[in-house]
Design a protein around this nucleic acid. Structure first.
Length: 289
DNA sequence: AAAAGCAGCAACCGCTTCGAA
DNA sequence: TTTCGAAGCGGTTGCTGCTTT
C-alpha cells in the first residue's frame, strides 16, 4: 500500500464563503508577515484554503483601503469611459478607481452598467455609444433598488458625494493622445496604495498595531464587518479612507507619502523598524495588492 | 404565507504572463 | 532556451436575499 509521491493526496482545501475566523487569521498573518509567497500563506496562517483563494480574499475584501458601497456618479462615469477605451480590462480600470477592486467593477458592469449601456444603445441606435451617464438618468440609475431602500445615500446626494473619494480627470485622459498606452503603464493617474492607508492610519495616531485586535481597537468607533470592511458607529462605511477627506487632499497626501519612498519597496514604517513586516509589499507603479 | 423569479455579489476556474532556475 | 511554479486576470458559477406573484 502507500502512495507514490505522485499519488500523494493533495491537501483538501476548503471552498465557499470565508468565515470571520478565516478572515481574521488571514488578515492577522498578512499584517504581521506580509503575504510573501501566496502558496505558503494558508499553511503558515493555519488555513485550509489554497493560496489563490487567500490572495483573492485579501485583494478583494481584506486589503486595507478598500472602499465599498455603491458607486458614485464619478466612479460610474470613470468605468464607462475607461471601458469604452480599454474594454474588459478590469484590472486596468480598477487602477483608476482607488479603493475599488477589479472584481467589484466587473460585477458592477455585468449587473448594471452593461444593461444601462445596452439601453442607451437601443434608444439611440444611430449614434455611437455614449457611455457617460446622462444627467437625466442618474436618479433612476441606482444599481440596486434594494439597497436604496435600506438607507444608502443616493449617489447624487451631497452626503454621498462628500463620501466619494474617487477622482479622475476625464479631460486629462481624453486629451492624452496615447491614452491606452499610458493607461497600460498606469503612470499618469494617482493610485491608492496600501502604504497610503497604512501611513494615514499611522499618522493619525492609529499606531498600526501588530495585531488585528489592536488595529481595530485603536479606532473605537469602527466596527469590523467580515464581508464589508469597517463600519463607523453611525453605520456608514469607512473602508480605510478618512471621512470628509477630499479627493485632492487624499491624493496630495498620497503623493507626499510616495515622495518618501525610495526605490522599490516600503521600508520600515511600521512596527518600529521590523523591516520584515512590510518588505513583502512591493511598491510598483501600479496598485499594490 | 409560500413559491418562483430575479439580481447582486463572492468565489471559483482556467488561461495567460512573468520570472527564476 | 526550456521548464516550472507563482501570480495575475477575466469569465463564469452558484449562493443568498429580495421582490413579485
Amino acid at each position: 500500500m502507500g502512495f507514490k509521491p505522485s499519488d500523494k493526496p493533495k491537501p483538501k482545501h476548503r471552498k465557499g464563503l470565508w468565515s470571520p475566523e478565516e478572515d481574521q487569521r488571514l488578515r492577522n498573518y498578512i499584517l504581521r508577515h506580509g503575504h510573501g509567497c501566496w502558496s505558503s500563506v494558508p499553511i503558515n496562517a493555519g488555513l485550509q484554503r489554497n493560496g489563490k483563494s487567500c490572495r483573492l480574499r485579501w485583494i478583494n475584501y481584506l486589503r486595507p483601503g478598500l472602499k465599498r458601497g455603491i458607486f458614485s456618479k464619478e466612479e460610474e462615469e470613470t468605468i464607462l469611459t475607461l471601458h469604452q477605451m480599454l474594454g474588459n480590462k478590469w484590472s486596468q480600470i480598477a487602477q483608476h478607481l482607488p479603493g475599488r477592486t477589479d472584481n467589484e467593477i466587473k460585477n458592477y458592469w455585468h449587473s448594471y452598467l452593461k444593461k444601462k449601456v445596452n439601453k442607451v444603445e437601443e434608444m439611440e441606435p444611430n449614434t455611437t455609444t455614449r457611455y457617460t451617464s446622462s444627467s437625466s438618468d442618474t436618479m433612476d440609475s441606482s444599481p440596486s433598488p434594494k439597497k436604496a431602500r435600506i438607507g444608502v445615500p443616493n449617489s447624487d446626494s451631497p452626503e454621498y458625494m462628500e463620501k466619494s473619494s474617487t477622482y479622475i480627470d476625464h479631460q486629462s485622459i481624453l486629451q492624452t493622445s496615447d491614452f491606452p498606452k499610458e493607461a497600460n503603464r498606469g503612470s499618469f493617474l494617482p493610485k491608492l496604495l496600501f502604504s497610503e492607508w497604512l501611513s494615514l492610519d499611522h499618522v493619525n495616531g492609529g499606531g498600526f498595531a501588530s495585531s488585528d485586535e489592536g488595529l481595530i481597537s485603536q479606532n473605537s468607533n469602527l466596527q469590523y464587518t467580515p464581508m464589508h470592511g469597517f463600519l463607523s458607529s453611525d453605520g456608514t462605511y469607512s473602508g480605510g479612507f478618512h471621512e470628509g477627506t477630499s479627493a485632492t487632499e487624499m491624493f496630495s497626501s498620497q503623493f507626499k507619502f510616495e515622495d518618501q519612498i525610495s526605490g522599490n519597496g516600503i521600508v520600515d514604517f511600521i512596527s518600529g523598524g521590523d523591516v520584515n513586516v512590510c518588505n513583502d509589499f512591493n511598491m510598483s507603479n501600479s496598485v499594490m495588492y
